[in-house]
């Protein structure tokens, strides 16, 4: 699996944090503008896969820290539960709930169950893609 390319190895070290940051950016802007959990998840998974190509499987697993299956389960649980707050307020399941906070300095922070759902999707996509790719890469060796 290891490509033994010095350029790719060096670039991989720099690109991984950048791509992960970019994926979080995509995740957070996704509500009103292009982006969202699915695309952000693909970018994050792509970052790890690039690292996998540059280094090897053990390195990729180490840099991920958790098992991708844990991400899959946690993401699915978060996504399903994000619909629940509405049910407790007597509204149909999955009705979006919004919380607004005034930030010091005049800014405003809007949080919502939609965001929680998107985070769940993000984790599911990262987990699912990496489970498949890491398993395939290991079968290849």
């Amino acid at each position: 699996m290891n490509m033994q390319s010095l350029i790719l190895r060096t670039a991989g070290n720099f690109l991984l944090p950048l791509l992960l940051l970019f994926s979080v950016f995509l995740l957070l802007r996704g509500h009103d503008e292009p982006g969202g959990g699915f695309i952000a998840g693909l970018v994050a998974a792509g970052a790890i896969v690039l690292y996998l190509f540059a280094m090897d499987i053990a390195d990729a697993r180490r840099v991920l820290r958790v098992d991708p299956r844990d991400l899959l389960g946690a993401g699915m649980a978060i996504a399903v539960l994000s619909g629940a707050p509405a049910a407790f307020l007597g509204q149909p399941y999955f009705t979006a709930q919004w919380w607004e906070f005034a930030l010091p300095g005049g800014g405003e922070l809007k949080l919502s169950t939609v965001l929680i759902f998107d985070i769940g999707v993000y984790l599911v996509v990262v987990g699912a893609v990496l489970t498949i790719i890491l398993n395939l890469a290991e079968a290849e060796d």
Partner: peptide
């Protein structure tokens, strides 16, 4: 109406978490 879908989804997610 929603629970017949949510219960298995949640049970599936939890059994993934505790895999």
């Amino acid at each position: 109406i929603a629970l017949p879908i949510i219960i298995p989804l949640l049970a599936g997610a939890l059994s993934l978490v505790f895999w």
